[in-house]
Each structure stands twice: as C-alpha cells, then as structure tokens.
Design a protein around this nucleic acid. Structure first.
Lengths: 336, 336
DNA sequence: ATTGCAACCGGCAACGATTGCGTAGATTTT
DNA sequence: AAAATCTACGCAATCGTTGCCGGTTGCAAT
C-alpha cells in the first residue's frame, strides 16, 4: 500500500507536536530556528510532501482546474489545452483534462466529478448534444467559477472566449466566390452549438453581399459533428446528386472537413469539379488531398485567454459581476 | 464560495447524527426503513453527493487513475486514452489525463501530482527525454500500482503492453523492398525509447533477409521526436544530399512521418523518386500527399489492455508478483 | 419480574494538515 | 520581589466521512 510520510510521522519521530512541525515547515515566526532546522532536515530526509487531499478538504481549494472538451483527438482542442496548460502551470495550478465525446451524459458525469474533486474552477467547451444547461447553472449559482471557450452558451453569465466565427465563415465563403464558384453548399455542424449558427450567418452574409441567391437545399447538417463518417458521406453524396448541383462546399467544422475530404476521395470526385473550404485546426491540413482552403482558429491563444479569465475569477477577493466575452479573429489560409 | 450539502447538513436538518445519516444513505442494515426514507428523500432534495475528497482522505482510495502521455495531439495517444476511458468508466473509475510534451521535468511534476492526489494507479507512456527512472521506481516500491504502455521501460517490474514494433518495422521495410527500392533510409526517433530500438532492429532484419547491405549513413535520429519540424527537414535534406542517395525512407515514428511528408513537399521532391513508409496512427494518413504506406498500432486496444492490467493490480487483495508483457501486432496499410 | 436480544441510533476517533488559543518557562521590567 | 512581557511550543477544533463501540428502547422468553 502506497503510504507517504505525514506530518504526524515527523512529529512522532522528533517528539514534537504536529502543530509545531506544520509551523516549522511553513517557516512560522513562532518556531525557534533550531527546531525549524531539525524539522526541515528530517522532512527532506523522508521526502515529505504535503498531502493535497487533506489540504483540499480543509481549505476547499485544490489549485487545480478542470477542463472539459468534446474530443481530445480534435486538434483544435488539444491545441487549446496546450495554451491552458502553459499559463496554468506558470501560475501554480494543475489541470485535470476530461473529454465527453460530444455526449451530454458524459459531460454531466465529468463536470460533477470535477466539481466534487473540488477543482477551483472549470473551463468548458460544450458538447454538441447538450441542450439542458441546468447542471451547469446550478454549479455556477453555487459559486463554482466557470469560463466557456469556443462553444459558448448564452444561458450563463460569466467570462467567455470564442472565435469570430461569423467573419471566418464569411471569409471562407467569399474566397470560394472569388475563385469563380456560384453554387456553394454548406456542410454544417450540430445546430445546438453557438458556433454553428454564427458560421451559418457568415456564409449567408457572404452570399448576399455577392448577390448569390441562398438555396436551402444546399445546406446539410451533420448533427453528429463528424464523429460519424457515414453521416458526412451520405450528406456529400446527397448534395452532389441534387439538381443544379453545387460546384463548391463550405464546411463549418473541423472534423466534418476531414470527413468531407475523405468522402470526395471515396466517391472519386474530380477536385477541380468541386472546390472546398472549411474550418480546420488540423496540423496536417496543408498536406491533405484533395486540398482545401481553411479557416484556422487561434486555439492556443484562446486557451490562454480562457484560463486567465478563470484565474481572475478564482483569485478575486470579491465577487465579480462585470463579465466580458472575448472574440478572437481567425486566419484564412488559401490553397492553390 | 461553492459549497455543496454535506452529511452534517442533513443530520442537522433532520435532527439525526451524522453517523446515522451516513448509514442510512449507504443502506446500512441497522437503520429503520422509515429513517432511511426520510434521509434519502432529503438527500435527493438538497442534491447531496458524497465528497470524494473526504473519502479519499479516509479510505486512501479515490477510484481515479492517472494517465501520463507525451502528447495529446498525437493520435496514437488520444486513441489509447479513448480505450482506457472506455473500460475505466465501465468499472467505476475516473481518469485524470496529463501530458508531458516529452519533457522529463513535466513528467516528474505530473507523476508526483497524480500520486499525491492519491490516484489508485498510474498508466504511463514514457517521455522521450527521460533517462532517470528513480522517481517512478520510488513510487512503485512504495506500492503505487503502475502499468506501462507503448513506450515501456525494463527498469521496473510490472505489467506492460506495447506493440510488436520489430515486426511492424520489418513489414514496412519489406514493403519498400518489394516495391523495388534498395536504398532505404531510416528516420528514427529518440534513441532512449524502447520502441526506437525495436523498430531499428526490424528495419535491419528486413534489409538482411533481402540481402541489402546496411548503410549507417542512411540512418538519422530525430531526438526531438518530430516535435521540432526543422530537425526533421534538416535530416531529410541531409539524407537526400548524400552520395548514392536513398530511393526510399522508412520512418519509425508517427509525428516524424508527418514532418517528413511536409519536408518532402516543401523541398519539392517528386513522390515517385522517393517512396516512404512509416509508423502512423493519424486518422487522416490515407488523405496525405505525398502518400505513404503506414504501420498502424492497435492504440485503442492497447489502452484497454493497459487499464485492465492496472485494475487487476489495484483491486488485487494480495500483492502480485507474476507480471506479463503483452505485445500487440500491427497492421500494415499499403498505399499505391 | 428479570433477563436476553434484537433493532435502532448516537458519540468518538481518525484520515492529514492548519490555526486560534492557551500556557509553561524564561526573561525583562517596574 | 512582584508583575509584565516574550518565546516556543501543545491542545483542540476543523474539513466530510465512516468504523467501532456504546447506549437506549421495545418485545419476547424465561
């Protein structure tokens, strides 16, 4: 059984009381230098480390923050996590990472687990399937600091950070138009998500600005968000079978972009016949074939900003009532 | 301040003692059904959930397991984690995921953090930079259950699971030979890693079996393991500038495979001139260009097996002294 | 009427660390 | 010499939960 040394062990060994040992280790003013020296040395000898569990129980602080994302395999999220960690470690916090696989049940379980493990705060990007935010509202009302990033929600008032999805979608759609395409389809993510609607708006605005009629039959929702390849392939096949079929597709999600490329390849479509542009933070997107222009989000920065907001909430002495929603711009990468 | 209901709160409200409430909630035999009912109902009303921190402190069990991997952005690891979670959740355990970015300092910090947060056990795939295993030996000797996966080490006796890297490398090299290549270079990972050497051996054996002379000047180590693109590009450039230059490259690591493809593209090499094959678990490897044949590891299964081994260690009543090292076979995917 | 025995519930201690308060003994002050 | 001050430490409570021991009923058997 794993059993590290405790303060009691030290106290017993040195014939002191636990209180004295504790104060000596924390360099308390009321302890003689002689005693301090003895305690410090013995502590180092037995490799004493304070038990964070006991401290959490007593102080209701754990110096750890919980991260909840839909999928680690999604580059955007693993990059954002790297950004979070870069700041968190610097400020003395640990991170506990969990993924939901876009399931709201798993999300509920993970969030509760983190809250009860007494993380000091929560960074969360919502799952596609979640429509009931009651559990989050509850925790937030009970005083748990929460910051939303990327997939944010309106229902809870707190700090949030996301991308300028509207302008990202606009730019991508515009690039397709400028390359001479006029029949531009939209392959979209789960409609519950904030980002889905913002990207849809950007797409529609671009069409409108360039006087291209909006055609509802060129819109396809992949409610499983690219986690299910078949759903995407069916959508693509379906799109390309419509009368007056599209000559371009704008894809409003990372995973769906990849699946769409695979579908076009599997269906043996000529890359020249159909142009594609989509959101993606994959680090190999420039090596994919067929290639696509892509909108890249500032994932790392978003993670950094999110955790800074969270630490502001956590470390604030007085309740914060003024919140901010940061919106980061996106980068369009044109291929060809 | 976030403050959920406790047993004491319930006891106070119902004018019972904490012990009674505790037993009622756990359906103890010595509590009347009437009391149980009252307690259960009130508990549900105030949304009581037992405090895992307090339980961890008391029971020295947390029903959570720590995961330490080099990089979440590496598909192999995110897949393995998915495998781990699939079993862990089923068995009532939570997972705490941390990444080291192949830094041994971060590894040390993360492992200690997990050990002290009293995880019940540890699943670890070693960082490229680590050569001193003292901290792990210490924890292992103190009784912390540890299982190694993928990047295993010899220095600690416990359960381990890894891939048949020798045969994977053999098959990949053989495929290059069979496609007519004779001057096959090797782009290799950090030499401290177990998998690096096994893959090197497989490569050499294939050369020997097909009577192709081994040429030391065709071997390049990327000790930063593909985390540094420039290192890989330099190695590739260097390889292709050697006299009697290679007509194929076998790449013995996931991230380096990607970087190598990018390097070949950036250096404008004709894909027909130089064939490549490498280890990769990327889910988009079939869409990459230039394309490569790839060896895929059973990452998900490896995660599942690792966590099953760990749970065996954790839940065993008596110390286990007979250990096993599972070796999973690999799949070769040929691209033409 | 006394004993036995369930059934039912409460008090205390402990897990590890911290902290307000108390105090013994030494030193200084008046 | 008596009182005040200071130094250096111990005691006990706390965080939430549970194991162990004890105690109080009510009821049946003797």
């Amino acid at each position: 059984m794993y059993k590290p040394a405790t303060i009691k062990d030290i106290a017993l060994a040195l014939k002191l009381s636990p209180s004295t040992v504790s104060r000596a280790l924390r360099d308390g003013y009321e302890i003689s230098t002689a005693t301090k020296k003895v305690v410090m040395e013995y502590a180092k000898k037995v490799n004493y480390q304070s038990n964070p569990i006991a401290l959490s129980l007593k102080n209701r602080r754990s110096y750890s923050i919980g991260i909840v994302v839909p999928k680690l395999a999604n580059s955007f999220f693993s990059q954002a996590i790297a950004g979070i960690e870069s700041i968190a470690y610097e400020r003395g916090y640990h991170t506990i990472i969990t993924q939901t696989h876009d399931s709201s049940e798993r999300e509920l379980i993970n969030v509760n687990h983190l809250a009860q493990r007494s993380v000091d705060g929560l960074l969360i990007s919502m799952s596609a399937g979640t429509s009931d935010y009651g559990f989050l509202k509850q925790l937030h009302n009970d005083g748990l600091p929460i910051v939303f990033f990327d997939r944010i929600i309106d229902e809870i008032e707190t700090f949030k950070v996301t991308s300028d999805n509207f302008s990202g979608a606009y730019k991508a759609t515009e690039s397709l138009i400028k390359s001479g395409r006029k029949k531009i389809a939209l392959l979209s993510n789960a409609p519950q998500l904030s980002i889905t609607n913002e990207r849809l708006s950007g797409y529609m605005k671009a069409l409108a600005d360039y006087h291209i009629p909006f055609r509802a039959e060129l819109i396809r929702n992949c409610s499983k968000g690219g986690n299910d390849y078949q759903e995407v392939e069916d959508a693509v096949k379906d799109l390309l079978a419509t009368p007056n079929k599209p000559d371009a597709i704008f894809i409003s999600s990372d995973r769906i972009s990849i699946s769409c490329i695979r579908a076009l390849k599997n269906l043996n479509f000529d890359p020249k016949e159909i142009a594609i542009a989509g959101f993606s933070n994959s680090d190999v997107v420039d090596l994919l074939h067929p290639s696509l222009s892509y909108v890249k989000q500032k994932s790392f920065e978003m993670g950094q900003i999110a955790v800074e907001m969270l630490l502001r909430l956590i470390e604030s002495k007085y309740p914060i009532t003024e919140f901010e929603t940061r919106v980061l711009d996106t980068e369009l990468h044109l291929i060809k």
